[in-house]
Design a protein around this nucleic acid. Structure first.
Lengths: 148, 148
DNA sequence: GTCGGTGCAAAAGCTTTGCAAACCG
DNA sequence: CGGTTTGCAAAGCTTTTGCACCGAC
């Protein structure tokens, strides 16, 4: 199976962080590399395991700290998918969101365009600059809703 | 200070649950009463403390179980407000959402109408029945955004 | 009376923290 | 070199679970 199109090239992420004057350690580069290689959203545990399989064993606290740092640098999103846990993803060109079915647990991808009007509304009505990077919306998928 | 208008009267909640054939125990009634009295969104800890002050000491596991039950019965919403923790609120007529500032932590109320277009979009484009009861949107409030 | 809910205590996560050693720039 | 970051180990906190007893209907 083909790898899904990478959201961000490793190089682009790194140069962005350098421009911000961020400090780049081996461990930070490893986490960025893991996120690029795995593609899509990943849990802390996923990242830890991936690194372990490549015989580079960062501790989980370190991974938490690095993800927090990437989040502060507006380079990864953090999303609570409910039962699927908290996931992290590099912010790139392929911005999208998820619908999570409360009944069957399905996770459906949706395009960022569904958020355009909400974003505009919050900016104009409330002067609020939303950071809707990777949102999870809960509800019932078509199949479960019909069944019920 | 005036109590904010109750979202739901205790009686309305109870009759709804009875209609659904739900079993009503003293503990369940106490949690519903606490949510009505306190008004607005509350953490598990808030509810526990409120009951404690009224010399009725439910254990926290029981409160978790009751809130889960109320959630399944579509009678309370559950929202993760970030640093302010996970909060529960009775679903009533006064449906609203929150903007949470990532910089100063401010929590701003917004009317449910901001979600109308998103809800419609998800229903029509994806056949998904969203349950956007009480959502938290993260970002920067006007003041913090201007400062930066 | 029966099925389901609660209390208690304990465990299970997941995430954070403190400190000494290592390292980036 | 100086200030940061990491590793390690440990604690913290919220939430869940098992089981015997109790209570609603």
């Amino acid at each position: 199976m083909l790898q899904p199109a990478a959201n961000s090239s490793k190089e682009a992420v790194i140069s962005k962080l350098k421009q911000r004057g961020e400090r780049l350690t081996i461990q930070r580069l490893l986490v960025i590399d893991a996120l690029c290689t795995l593609g899509g959203h990943q849990t802390v545990h996923d990242i830890h395991q991936h690194l372990h399989q490549h015989s580079t064993d960062l501790t989980e606290p370190t991974i938490y700290r690095i993800l927090q740092w990437l989040k502060d640098a507006e380079t990864v999103s953090q999303t609570d998918l409910g039962h699927s846990g908290i996931v992290y993803e590099l912010l790139g060109t392929n911005r999208h969101h998820h619908l999570v079915c409360l009944s069957c647990g399905a996770v459906i991808d949706v395009d960022d365009s569904v958020m355009a009007s909400l974003r505009e509304h919050l900016r104009q009505e409330y002067g609020f600059e939303p950071r809707i990077d990777h949102m999870a919306v809960f509800g019932m998928c078509r199949a479960c809703h019909n069944q019920q």
